[in-house]
């Protein structure tokens, strides 16, 4: 039993750190804090270019949408007028009977 206690005491014996251990540890920790982060950074002009392109494409899409809507409205008006004229001509030239 005494032998076991001796082994245990021996294993748990306080061992002083090697000389300069604390200084080296603190120096390394400070160095890691100072090290720059590895972050992906785009140059400013790339961001500005992307924003400009987005603006141009957005503007073009909006312009196309407006032109399309305008063309659609004109088309519908044109067809309405055409249909209306054909209807009037048909009514004038052909005496109509009751719809069956």
């Amino acid at each position: 039993m005494n032998q076991f206690e001796d082994q245990l005491r021996d294993a748990l014996r306080r061992v002083p750190p090697p000389a300069g251990f604390v200084e080296r540890t603190l120096a390394r920790a400070a160095q890691e804090q100072r090290a720059p982060r590895r972050a992906i950074r785009f140059p400013r002009y790339v961001a500005a270019l992307a924003a400009s392109l987005a603006l141009v494409f957005g503007g073009l899409r909006y312009q196309e949408y407006r032109q399309g809507q305008q063309a659609k409205e004109q088309l519908m008006t044109a067809l309405r007028i055409t249909g209306s004229q054909l209807h009037q001509v048909q009514q004038k030239v052909a005496p109509a009977g009751p719809e069956r």
Binding site: L79, R80, G83, L86, H87, Q90, G97, E99
Partner: peptide, 13 residues
């Protein structure tokens, strides 16, 4: 076109 675009449907002749 008659019967669409607000144009009345043409009656049959």
């Amino acid at each position: 076109l008659s019967g669409h675009f607000g144009i009345p449907k043409l009656p049959k002749v």
